[in-house]
Design a protein around this nucleic acid. Structure first.
Lengths: 234, 234
DNA sequence: GATAGGGATAGGTGCAGACATAAAGCAAGG
DNA sequence: CCTTGCTTTATGTCTGCACCTATCCCTATC
């Protein structure tokens, strides 16, 4: 038939609005036209404009309030998003051969710091695991994990000699809340022994805690090999 | 009139689907009913189901493909999102008094490593700045910044004695691409001098590079005070 | 002048229907 | 058996419409 006018998609609307923001046509703090006006300008439905604006809002570039309208954020919210895949996949993706070693496994009364952070009651017991993940035989990541044995009695049936607790937990246990921290620390004894650091060397650590409906499930400290970086691009 | 049946919102649909996933009703890898079937079950429009599913997909819990349908991810994509506010706001939010000091400002030929990482041509010049951000008089963050002086000639008119380059850049310069890295490093001379570290102490560093339409704008290394953690909860 | 009430407005979300598009899977042909 | 191409189908997206709700802001009142 006749050439149909290209349908305007939310991506195009989003791109154009982004352009106007980055090029200063709509400077920081300024008020954007209403959704209806934009829909008219772009010759599309308001829902399309809405989605574009909503995504830019989520990306931290806009500030939207009912009745007040949509404004360009004074300082764009800067955020970084990191993917943290399972170690095995991360290693295999580099082309290296993955190997896993269980170094220690012990059932202990939960230490105070653990009880406090996971909100455990007095006298709780926890399974403590120390595991090493290797890439082509080289130490890659040391995993120091505590698992709430009350909340997860089935954990005692696992031997964790051939599969890390990480992958088992992901498969077997849901979580509702997570806290992740990144930090730099001086290499401790176990990091010296298993990752080849010298005492006091800077180590990049990730700490992760998870809860399921307010009950603490697990706490893990992941220590990375020398020179490890967590990088993201967007 | 008569009691109107509560409209089903995408949040409710999302919550119910999430419940079925976390409680194992729809185990990892399983195929969910189609959007149409779900819309019928929840007595809502397909668009509502679509939004719920789309958000769960973005959260990394689902894997959606046209024609193939929607599946529960075998391993939920684990991701962490960090907000990185402007240092001043971060400090003021803790209730502390913010202070900023310019330590060094020099115009230099871009060093090779910088030229390589920002894709600068031979013989480029760059403005090098060293700044300290303090909270209640205590060093909080050391900012070691390089700015492409070719791409941003107006940077030479700034004196940066009363405002950090960070805030000026945010206000004045757009960017199209960003790379952020987190890492642990041994304290270097400047970190020892200005942040009170002992030589070799572990320092948490953030490196950030930005480009505007493929031309490098700035590279910054942010070194944090002792014990700094980057934390997120979700 | 301070405050409480009441539009008017902008975004938030819902619905039903339509077409677009990717891709799985079957079928025909080599 | 392998490749190519078609059909089918689930998701992706858009359109218009409607109603809800938070809020700004103006006005009436104390």
């Amino acid at each position: 038939m006749f050439a149909v006018t290209e349908a305007i998609g939310f991506r195009e609307v989003k791109a154009e609005i982004l352009r106007r923001i980055t090029q200063g046509i709509w400077p920081p703090g300024s008020l954007l036209p209403g959704e209806l006006a934009l829909a008219e300008e772009f010759a599309c439905a308001r829902a399309t404009v809405n989605r574009a604006l909503r995504e830019l809002d989520e990306a931290g570039l806009l500030d939207r309030k009912r009745k007040a309208g949509t404004r360009v954020r004074l300082a764009p919210l800067r955020q970084a998003r990191f993917e943290m895949p399972i170690v095995r996949l991360e290693i295999e993706r580099t082309g290296a051969r993955y190997r896993y070693v269980l170094i220690k496994k012990e059932l202990l009364p939960a230490p105070d710091w653990l009880a406090a952070r996971l909100h455990l009651g007095q006298g709780s017991t926890a399974l403590h695991l120390l595991c090493l993940h290797l890439a082509d035989g080289q130490p890659w990541q040391l995993e120091d994990r505590w698992i709430n044995a009350q909340a997860l009695p089935q954990v005692l049936d696992q031997d964790f000699h051939h599969e890390g607790p990480n992958e088992w937990l992901i498969r077997a246990v849901p979580y509702s809340e997570v806290e992740v921290s990144f930090l730099a620390a001086a290499a401790a004894a176990e990091e010296v022994t298993h990752l080849g650091f010298d005492p006091g060397d800077p180590v990049f650590r990730v700490e992760r805690m998870t809860w399921w409906q307010s009950v603490g499930i697990t706490h893990v400290t992941l220590s990375h090999r020398r020179g490890h970086r967590m990088t993201t691009r967007y």
